[in-house]
Design a protein around this nucleic acid. Structure first.
Lengths: 202, 202
DNA sequence: GCGGAAAACCATACCGAGTTCATTCATGAA
DNA sequence: TTCATGAATGAACTCGGTATGGTTTTCCGC
């Protein structure tokens, strides 16, 4: 089924994405024009846009984010949604050792954070996740509380991510950042579970 | 001090904003080009852009949002940040009667919600508020918890706003929407204060 | 009032992102 | 080998936004 045609398409797509990623990392998102990318990847501009709907999509290619709604929906019986999420992120924080291509990931994160357009776009992705999560939580808590808790959870996770990447970008080692993340995960879920009064000792 | 020059500037600016608002309300943000606006307002495109940095700014002119950080910073002594915010929004919900030009406001909200670009831009405004709030809360809770709680609070308030305008846009009367908002405000702040476990009855 | 500086404004050309479309060309199936 | 398909092209186009250089209007010191 995977003929030459398919493979070539894959290759072209990947070549464009790689060239773009490199150029963005070197010069920043805004300083690179799609014309240049197309030229460097040796395709026509129209071809580039047949693979990626926008310049943003090119920079965000493969940026997925976690499937919050899925984690909650597929949780083991007897667990609250929050317990399932806490377990997931606890595990994630624990497995942060000498990682895969951390450099490439960081370069990409830096590119995104440095460009308002991309920051907003990434935000927009999160928005859809939040809605999906709210949908799942509706069974549990009703629509009003579900919308509110989904928003709270999404906000906390974004904050965790920001803080984690912030550590890494400011030169902290992967282990240090991992440890800080582990602490923050617990704090975040304690807050979500018990509320802000938890902080005020009463 | 308010010479002719100033007045004319004001006039021009306002004329542009009004023309734009009308056109956006009639045809939607994306379906109106800045050239059309400039033409209709009888100014050159360059003039338009000397008053408003971007097309977005034109649509969001005057959209401020609340000053969360200020509310917390200026709270009466002996109150927790959350109590201050709850009081503020409780008051806001209560004062929703037969309002000013609700129609104009709603038209604008509709325009914003209908356009992804504007939605993201509005989101971006909130982002800065969240940071300011986190700054203020740092004194109280330390930086890590402050970032998390600020994110939670901002998320809840956004959700309240969405839900409120959602009611209004789907034809609910101002009083009904106000009552629903009042209920949701209490729910939101209960959640923030006592956490999600509050919902699970334990 | 008068003359010149400053500021508002204008027309126009330009740039980059993104779209459209007629055309070319490689592929894979008959 | 032929032929339909669809990937790729290139060029022209729209629209948001910027830059430039020139023209009018307002201001202010004389």
């Amino acid at each position: 089924m995977t003929g030459l045609r398919e493979r070539k398409k894959q290759q072209t797509r990947q070549r464009i994405a790689e060239v773009a990623a490199r150029m963005f990392a070197e010069r920043g998102f805004d300083a690179v024009t799609v014309n240049e990318i197309a030229e460097a990847a040796d395709v026509a501009k129209a071809t580039l846009f047949s693979y990626f709907p926008t310049k943003e999509a090119l920079a965000l290619d493969g940026v997925g984010g976690d499937d919050l709604a899925g984690i909650v929906a597929r949780r083991p019986a007897g667990r609250t949604p929050l317990e399932a999420l806490r377990a997931h992120y606890r595990a994630f924080a624990a497995e942060q050792g000498p990682d895969t291509d951390l450099d490439a990931l960081l370069a990409r994160v830096r590119v995104i954070q440095d460009s308002p357009v991309l920051r907003d776009a990434a935000n927009s992705l999160l928005y859809r996740q939040r809605q999906a999560l709210a949908q799942v939580l509706t069974d549990e808590y009703g629509p009003r509380a579900a919308a509110l808790t989904a928003a709270q959870i999404a906000a906390c996770l974004t904050t965790l991510q920001e803080s984690y990447f912030g550590h890494l970008l400011s030169g902290a080692g992967a282990q240090d950042a991992g440890r800080a993340l582990a602490r923050d995960v617990e704090l975040a879920f304690d807050l979500l579970e018990r509320g802000i009064s938890h902080l005020e000792g009463r």
